[in-house]
Nucleic acid binder design. Structure first.
Lengths: 354, 354
DNA sequence: AACTTTTGCTTAAACGTTTAAACAAAATAC
DNA sequence: GTATTTTGTTTAAACGTTTAAGCAAAAGTT
């Protein structure tokens, strides 16, 4: 009784959202005609189209996404999961994805795992809950168990991984050739005359970091340099970790003459330590980072780094998603697209002047 | 013709998602009964509830959120917009919001403006598009134009701001008393015997930073200290900016004996500079940060800071949202909740030993 | 003028839920 | 043993959109 009353009050106070029906009533046409007019259907006259759009604007009409998504069986939303938000690489990737997807009428729901496995799972859950049409993701550092990603696949919606992917998971993948990138870096350092090349790498269980480590090891071999255990360090690659691992390397009786760091952030930390200790870069120790973050060009000395082609990766990932949506049958063939990375040589490793 | 065919193929290949109807068919009951059983309606017998839930599990049933949201007229989603993802404060706030909201059946869509106005607008658009039931936001540093936030209000869904709010905008707000916080800090520094207290603050156009600056100025006055222009600096408050502004202060002929930095990150940068220059903290210069980030306790010397009660803010913001949802009429009265902050005194400012 | 085609709309069903209302059967009350 | 309440379910409509199918009128074709 009281409840009924308050409900009526609500109805009075809340200006009901205008629907397609309201527009139809104003113009004395059917809701179907309105819907078609709004979608520029060729079977609707220009006159009614104009009228409908005008009334829609007047009544402040906004389509009910839930209704159309339900009816069409797709939400036109794609979920993105990135491990971090503040890296130039990831934001570049996302931006170019967004560009491609928006053009095709898709909206994006961004989520960040912050490198945490739990958050990643939460992200997947909300994305599935909101009925996204697909998920494009890059895995958190922590993630080892992949059952949650399989949950996506079992729902039947496309999953595309980029950068931080996994070989086991049977999905499309876009990334750069990390193994080869290490080769390019080591080759460059050798050409600069370096003989004791250290590697501050990421954790081996992450595909890309493992590949960089393997590449480092194999490249040393190719150039007949010995692999010394004390020169190969795993780390979480934050600025602070870069400082710590660099300090660790400087404590060795036989310090390296070059350090290849698997992330620009950690490389920056390492550089800070070197500068504080008055160690000359690149003369005493040459330094190479990874990711081509903008700051690498801005610090002194500027840091040599690997350009990961974020725009290209984003574009390809988005296009792969669109391919899935446009194919009527479930695609069986997988897209594994591996781009070749590019070394941007800067002062931190330029011992031999050209 | 061909299209029809391919559609049929699709139907065959794609295992249709199981719906409430499928469960109903299996058990020979009505879909309505199934729906009620799944929601533990008191009018459904325990026996059928159990049976329904079992079948649901067997068929791998997942409720169609779009359908239920459409029918119920609410999505049970709440959008959150935070300026940054990596700050302890914001992640604490969000976590406690999530806790409160999940308990009441709400899911969260997190977005990050990354301090960019454009991204903030994009976030608002996608959130409105996904038909969230409300938005809880903290404004980007860049944001000056508030028309986009008014767009939310004009849609009739609740908007709750926290921390970075705005006086003009007629919305609920939860935050700490920044003005008073500055007073607490200045008082503390004066008690430690400091006479030239500098302030590295944020940009004045952001409410909270403006309040901190005003608080700093008024507190100086109260303690009969002169306000010196060269000691009051605006900045973006990153680590790097903290370094730069500290260096700027050290270039003065008459350097300060205390620095109050409006962010722990910038305070950390300042501390790095002080340590590099062998300036004793707190003996030569006392240092106070803001935000009580975990690292403030971990660096040497540990940094005195202001605890912003992130959990409390998150909880209150979530509760305010829930109040909106539960009230049948549109609430006119605004909630402005200002919490008192707490100074955590650590080594960086402890000149007078207790 | 008698047809076909095209144009511009309408009708009605569907998407998967929820929920008010109805109703039969069982349990309880008197 | 009839009246009333409670229990457990069904029916049917609704949420706002899209879309296949239908249909009348206009335009085009012989």
């Amino acid at each position: 009784m009281l409840k009924r009353l308050s409900k009526d009050i609500k109805k009075i106070i809340i200006k009901k959202k205008t629907t397609i029906k309201d527009i139809a009533n104003v113009l004395n046409i059917s809701p179907a005609a309105v819907s078609k007019a709004l979608h520029d259907d060729s079977r609707i006259s220009e006159k009614t189209k104009k009228a409908v759009k005008q009334v829609a604007k007047n009544l402040n009409y906004h389509p009910n996404h839930l209704a159309s998504a339900l009816r069409k069986g797709k939400s036109n939303l794609v979920g993105i999961i990135a491990p971090r938000t503040n890296s130039h690489f990831f934001s570049g990737v996302v931006q170019s994805m967004e560009e491609v997807l928006n053009k095709k009428g898709y909206n994006i729901i961004m989520t960040h795992s912050n490198e945490s496995y739990k958050k990643e799972c939460d992200n997947i859950d909300t994305l599935l809950y909101t009925q996204v049409d697909g998920i494009i993701a890059s895995m958190a550092n922590e993630t080892i168990d992949l059952s949650y990603f399989n949950k996506i696949k079992s729902k039947g919606i496309p999953l595309i991984l980029f950068d931080r992917g996994e070989n086991d998971l049977n999905v499309d993948y876009i990334g750069i050739d990390d193994y080869k990138s290490s080769h390019i870096i080591v080759k460059h350092l050798v050409e600069q005359g370096c003989k004791r090349i250290a590697h501050i790498g990421g954790y081996k269980h992450t595909r890309i970091f493992n590949n960089r480590i393997r590449g480092y090891i194999d490249a040393l071999k190719e150039h007949n340099l010995p692999l010394e255990e004390e020169l190969l360090i795993e780390s979480s690659l934050s600025i602070e970790e870069g400082r710590k691992k660099m300090e660790q390397l400087l404590k060795l009786k036989d310090i390296p003459d070059a350090v290849y760091v698997a992330s620009d952030y950690a490389a920056l930390g390492a550089l800070q330590v070197l500068k504080e200790r008055q160690i000359k870069v690149p003369e005493d120790i040459a330094l190479v980072g990874f990711g081509n973050e903008p700051f690498t060009a801005m610090v002194t000395p500027s840091i040599t780094s690997i350009n990961q082609h974020s725009e290209e990766i984003g574009k390809l990932a988005a296009k792969t998603f669109l391919e899935h949506m446009n194919s009527t049958v479930i695609k069986q063939s997988l897209n594994k697209k591996i781009l070749e990375a590019e070394l941007i040589i800067r002062d931190s490793s330029k011992k031999v002047k050209a």
